[in-house]
Amino acid sequence: MSSIRQRTAFRPCIDLHSGQVKQIVGGSLNDKDESLLKTNFVSSKPPSYYAKLYRDNCLAGAHVIKLGPGNDEAAKECLRTWPDGLQIGGGITLENAQTWIDAGAAKVIVTSYLFPDAKFSLERLKALSNAIGVKRLVVDVSCRKRGSEWVVAMDKWQTMTDMKVSKEFLDILADYCSEFLVHAADVEGLCKGIDEELVRVLGEWTRIPTTYAGGGNSLSDLELVNQLSHGKVDLTFGSALDIFGGKTVKFEECVAWNNQNANIL
């Protein structure tokens, strides 16, 4: 079982849509109607620019998410820039997971493959974990709020599954993967604050490294997540970050936060 850092760290991302680095309002992704898509930022820089930036600042474990088709070459460009330094998600299956690792991914991130017909398949999780190894697998338990609970969402957060985020579910997953990635899809890209209750319960429930993404809009959110999760959950900034056109969080300050706390484990 992987050890959990005892202080929250900044974890960067590269979101790819139609081959470009973008920041998208998570709940607006819809395969059936592209007109619903809301984009906060479209980069004029190639994906490799961000991979190099993270590499040069020793920000290992950044997640590269392919949001739909047309992103494979952009993802491979990132991996060529920093082999074994990035995690790849989006369309990962048993059939292609090893191919992405061979292409340079440190880990692969999976969600939809584990939910055929939107129903959780422990058999698929076991098969994927056995094929590539626990240390190479990240499970994305991204979710949407339904009443007082969070339900795992798949297919770019469009389809609700039969599984609720709970300690019991996370305990099952943790036997077969080395990390969790949790996008709070309802607040993703809105820059209106994190889902504090979700971060708090993740801190209580998780026993492996976990990264939360969604709504972060201030450097102080790093300390907030640290307090809420007792240092067990890391934080990703997206649309609020200056390298993605944001106005409220500076990339260099996030790097400084990590460097300041690098010796706290």
Rank of each mutant, 00 (worst) to 15 (best):
K126F: 04
T161R: 01
Q227E: 15
I243E: 01
M160V: 10
S166Y: 07
L228D: 10
T206N: 00
A240F: 13
L125E: 13
K126R: 14
Y176H: 15
V151S: 04
E223M: 14
S121I: 10
S218Q: 13
R144D: 01
E197F: 06
F115Q: 02
S142V: 13
V108F: 10
A106T: 03
D242P: 11
L219S: 11
N217S: 12
E149R: 15
D171P: 14
D221V: 05
E196F: 09
D242M: 14
C177M: 05
K156I: 06
A103L: 08
E179P: 07
A106L: 13
V233N: 00
E223C: 08
D195H: 00
D117S: 10
W157K: 04
G193A: 15
E223K: 13
G147L: 06
S239T: 10
D102H: 11
G216V: 04
K135Y: 03
I194P: 06
D242H: 14
E204S: 13
S229M: 12
G231Y: 04
G214H: 05
D242G: 08
I243K: 07
V182E: 09
K232I: 04
S178F: 03
L181Y: 12
V233R: 02
I109C: 12
S178T: 02
D195M: 01
V108P: 01
D117A: 06
G214Q: 02
I101D: 11
A185Y: 11
G203N: 00
D234G: 07
N217P: 05
P209L: 02
C191V: 14
I194K: 00
K232T: 06
V201N: 02
L228M: 14
K126P: 07
L137P: 01
T211I: 12
I208L: 02
K232L: 03
